[in-house]
Amino acid sequence: MNPCFYWIGRPVSFRPGETIAAALLRAGIADLGPEGGAVRGRVFCGIGACQACVVAIAGEGPVEACLTPARSGMRLAPQPGLGLHHD
């Protein structure tokens, strides 16, 4: 059995050495953005250049999902305030 972390309370299994983004995508989760944001979070470049995949780790803060190795028990959620808002 693979270890898991939690995406908005949902368990997501991952393989040793896998990034958060890779595990989320393998689980069919591509939408990483907050509800109502003008630009929703997603995995785009996969190399940390665009910061589109920033997510929040409970107790730690924001990280780029495409660069951060998954760890068992992590609690993840969309990064508050992600998205561009135009006046």
Score class of each variant (00 low, 15 high):
residue 21 A to W: 05
residue 77 A to W: 04
residue 13 S to K: 03
residue 74 M to I: 00
residue 33 G to K: 00
residue 80 P to Y: 03
residue 24 L to R: 06
residue 30 A to Y: 11
residue 84 L to T: 13
residue 49 A to D: 14
residue 66 C to T: 01
residue 42 R to Q: 12
residue 37 G to V: 12
residue 38 A to K: 15
residue 81 G to A: 02
residue 60 E to W: 00
residue 74 M to L: 14
residue 23 A to T: 04
residue 8 I to S: 12
residue 20 I to V: 11
residue 28 G to Q: 04
residue 58 A to C: 04
residue 86 H to W: 15
residue 75 R to S: 01
residue 48 G to I: 07
residue 67 L to R: 05
residue 28 G to C: 08
residue 26 R to H: 10
residue 59 G to P: 10
residue 6 Y to W: 07
residue 36 G to Q: 07
residue 25 L to I: 13
residue 1 M to T: 13
residue 18 E to N: 09
residue 7 W to S: 07
residue 46 G to F: 06
residue 44 F to K: 10
residue 33 G to N: 08
residue 36 G to E: 06
residue 82 L to M: 14
residue 14 F to N: 02
residue 69 P to M: 04
residue 16 P to L: 01
residue 55 V to G: 06
residue 63 V to P: 01
residue 29 I to P: 05
residue 24 L to Y: 01
residue 75 R to D: 08
residue 23 A to M: 00
residue 49 A to M: 13
residue 84 L to A: 13
residue 54 V to P: 01
residue 49 A to H: 14
residue 64 E to C: 14
residue 2 N to K: 11
residue 77 A to N: 04
residue 61 G to Y: 02
residue 34 P to K: 10
residue 31 D to A: 12
residue 37 G to H: 11
residue 83 G to Y: 07
residue 7 W to T: 02
residue 44 F to A: 11
residue 6 Y to V: 02
residue 32 L to A: 04
residue 38 A to S: 13
residue 6 Y to Q: 03
residue 33 G to Q: 06
residue 75 R to H: 03
residue 66 C to L: 08
residue 86 H to Y: 15
residue 22 A to N: 12
residue 51 Q to F: 15
residue 52 A to E: 15
residue 42 R to M: 12
residue 76 L to F: 02
residue 49 A to Q: 14
residue 46 G to Q: 05
residue 7 W to N: 05
residue 23 A to W: 01
residue 81 G to P: 05
residue 41 G to M: 00
residue 4 C to S: 11
residue 59 G to R: 05
